[in-house]
Design a protein around this nucleic acid. Structure first.
Length: 596
RNA sequence: GCGCUCGUAGCUCAGCUGGAUAGAGCAUCGGAUUUCGAUUCCGAGGGUCGGAGGUUCGAAUCCUUCCGAGCGCGCCA
């Protein structure tokens, strides 16, 4: 069970109290030993009129306690009524126990937010985890399709970090397959072009994009005409290495435009280096375990394979670990399949101490999950875990119309073009404002719009509005209200937050109190999108409260003749600002002090 | 043919890993608004959670089976 930083957050606190009561009851009523309390939860009820929190304790424990849920609920409720934090306990429905907390609980929750500041909601003590994302082939610039996985992986990594994990952000460079040889040949053509040769049209099967021209230039500058005299076998490794290096630089630049930086760039080629062949080692390792054999596979059922050749080949016994068929490791030309080096790669991750691994893949790799998880099971003796997150397609639109994308002739929309047009914040937020496995419509026109339709704007404006309120408060009531966040929080910490008593204000405080709970669940489920939705809801309640102040002057944040109340409201605004900033930071979106 | 993912309001999507009367935004309709800085706010209507079975105190959520969409299906990565 992970622990929060300086104090239990409210829901965990109440859950602990409920557990305490149940345990005491178990002892007094001599329930059987070893009852599982882990299914007992405390959560906000759907319908707020039921109270602040509800627990299912009685329903979950009824069977083992050999009691009727309603009766058990009454017994638990009776004991909870003596709790100092709880104002009201009701038993409802099939055995729900509804709790209404004393107003002081919410005031204390706000104090917790202020006390912990940017650390509010942080969890400590998580495990080491490796998040591998992007891993785009180093054969060209990144296109929009890569965007979503990049943003998702990055936000997930940040979320896990905030939830206490020791996170490594990793990029797997596919620099060993046939596609990088194609890259090398394409670059070599550009090299000849750079030396003044007329190369004509780029032949079928090579990469036509202009982005290889600088590579040709660099090769020409570096090697002059030396390479021309060599055979392909001689120049290819040199040209390939140079092209890959330059493509990776470009990719890193593209990622930097989204503020994404990996800790580790892992080369596939490094796995098959002569003298240190990890793929061969891994195959031997699996052979020794009996997970590899020579055999035949039935031909695939779907689209007919033209050159199907029924042959004896080296197979990994993936079916022993939950996959549908066994998988080949060596191609007919005796080189390793991609899968073979991927097994070695994931074993390597495990050997580096990552028991928990997360891969972020595009939707077209969905059929690959089972075999990879089978491989991780086999190579780690089921000690390692691999969660694969699939990000679905992004449909790029402009005013509802699909943006044309054709793959040929390098005529695709690059990641950079999209970021340049709509900005890093909009790209990041919108990519996260959807479940990862749902198809996403990304409308270039809509995400630029400054309206409630656009959640990016709406949330950022919430943060800016908070600062606007501070500026006004400074001008009207509190010239001493500090500009610096840390100083301001310290100054606000001693405000009379008990005076926040309007139901609308309490709702806002309740929303703030839920933040740690939401983060914990999002981290456990590997679902950063939950943060985006939470922030939208929080901003929405904040804006609503602000607007209420127009009709109901007593709800305005700044009350000129009541400095105490104004200060308490500033504390509340600070709470909102802190949490908005915290959540946006995890998503990698800026929290501006003003909108322009 | 098989596997994976998805199917929730007219549209775009949430639904906190099984909880109470399934929620937002857009759109529609009806109100409010010379505001501490917007491009706002409040309310209403709108649902067989794709269909049918099952599991249990309780299912949008788990299982089975159909229907429909997307992706994939030795040596491509």
């Amino acid at each position: 069970m992970p622990q929060t930083s300086s104090s239990l957050h409210l829901f965990a606190d109440v859950l602990a109290r409920v557990h305490g009561v149940c345990r005491a009851l178990a002892a007094d009523s001599s329930w059987p030993e070893g009852i599982d309390f882990s299914r007992v939860v405390v959560e906000p009820p759907r319908d707020a009129s039921h109270g602040d929190m509800a627990t299912n304790a009685a329903m979950v424990l009824a069977k083992e306690a050999k009691a009727k849920p309603r009766d058990l609920a009454e017994q638990i409720a009776e004991r909870l009524r003596t709790d100092a934090l709880i104002a009201k306990v009701d038993v409802a429905g099939p055995g729900f126990i509804n709790l209404t907390l004393k107003p002081a609980a919410w005031a204390e929750a706000l104090r917790t937010v202020l006390r912990e500041g940017a650390e509010y909601g942080r969890i400590r003590g998580g495990a080491k985890v490796n998040v591998e994302y992007v891993s785009a082939n180093p054969t060209g610039p990144m296109h929009v399709g890569h965007c979503r996985g990049a943003v998702f992986g990055d936000a997930l990594a940040s979320l896990l970090q905030f939830a206490g994990h020791d996170v490594t952000r990793e990029y797997y460079i596919n620099d060993a397959g046939a596609q990088v040889d194609v890259l090398a040949r394409s670059a070599f053509l550009r090299y000849r072009e750079a030396l003044g040769e007329d190369i004509g049209a780029i032949p079928e099967g090579l990469y036509p994009g202009d982005y290889l021209k600088p590579v040709g230039q660099a090769l020409a500058t570096e090697h002059g005409e030396k390479l021309l005299a060599m055979s392909e076998a001689q120049w290819l490794p040199t040209v390939r290495a140079k092209a890959i290096a330059m493509m990776m630089d470009e990719i890193k630049d593209d990622l930097a435009a989204l503020n994404i930086r990996h800790d580790v760039f892992f080369s596939e080629r490094s796995l098959i280096e002569t003298g240190n062949n990890k793929v061969a080692e891994t195959i031997d390792f699996l052979k020794a375990k009996g997970d590899i054999y020579e055999g035949r596979l039935p031909p695939p059922k779907g689209a007919p394979v033209e050159d199907w050749e029924d042959r004896e080949q080296l197979l990994f016994r993936a079916t022993a670990y939950g996959d549908d068929v066994d998988r080949p490791l060596i191609k007919s030309d005796n080189s390793y399949t991609y899968f073979a080096s991927d097994i070695a790669y994931h074993k390597n991750k495990f050997d580096r101490g990552f028991v928990e691994m997360i891969d972020v893949w595009g939707a077209d790799h969905g059929g690959y999950i089972k075999r990879m998880q089978a491989a991780v099971k086999a190579t780690t003796s089921a000690k390692g875990s691999l969660d694969v997150k699939i990000v679905q397609l992004v449909k790029l639109l402009r005013n509802g119309e699909p943006v044309k994308m054709s793959k040929r002739s390098g005529d695709f929309v690059t990641l950079r073009e999209v970021v340049d047009e709509v900005g890093q914040d909009a790209v990041r937020f919108m990519m996260l404002y959807r479940k990862n496995d749902a198809v996403l419509d990304f409308d270039l026109a809509k995400v630029m719009e400054q309206s409630r339709d656009n959640p990016v704007f709406y949330v950022q404006y919430g943060h800016a509005r908070g600062h606007s309120i501070f500026r006004n408060a400074r001008a009207e009531v509190f010239p001493e209200l500090p500009e610096d966040a840390g100083a301001r929080i310290a100054w606000l910490a001693e405000s009379a937050v008990e005076r926040l008593s309007d139901p609308v204000e309490l709702d806002l405080l309740k929303r703030l109190a839920i933040y740690p709970r939401m983060l914990e669940a999002a981290a456990a489920a590997h679902e950063p999108h939950r943060i985006a939705f939470y922030l939208y809801d929080l901003a929405s309640e904040f804006h609503a409260l602000w607007t209420k102040g127009r009709d109901l002057p007593y709800l305005r944040f700044i009350i000129n003749n009541d400095a105490d109340l104004t200060k308490a409201r500033m504390a509340m605004v600070q709470g909102v600002v802190s949490v908005l900033a915290s959540g946006l930071a995890i998503l990698g979106v800026h929290a501006p002090d003003e909108m322009r």
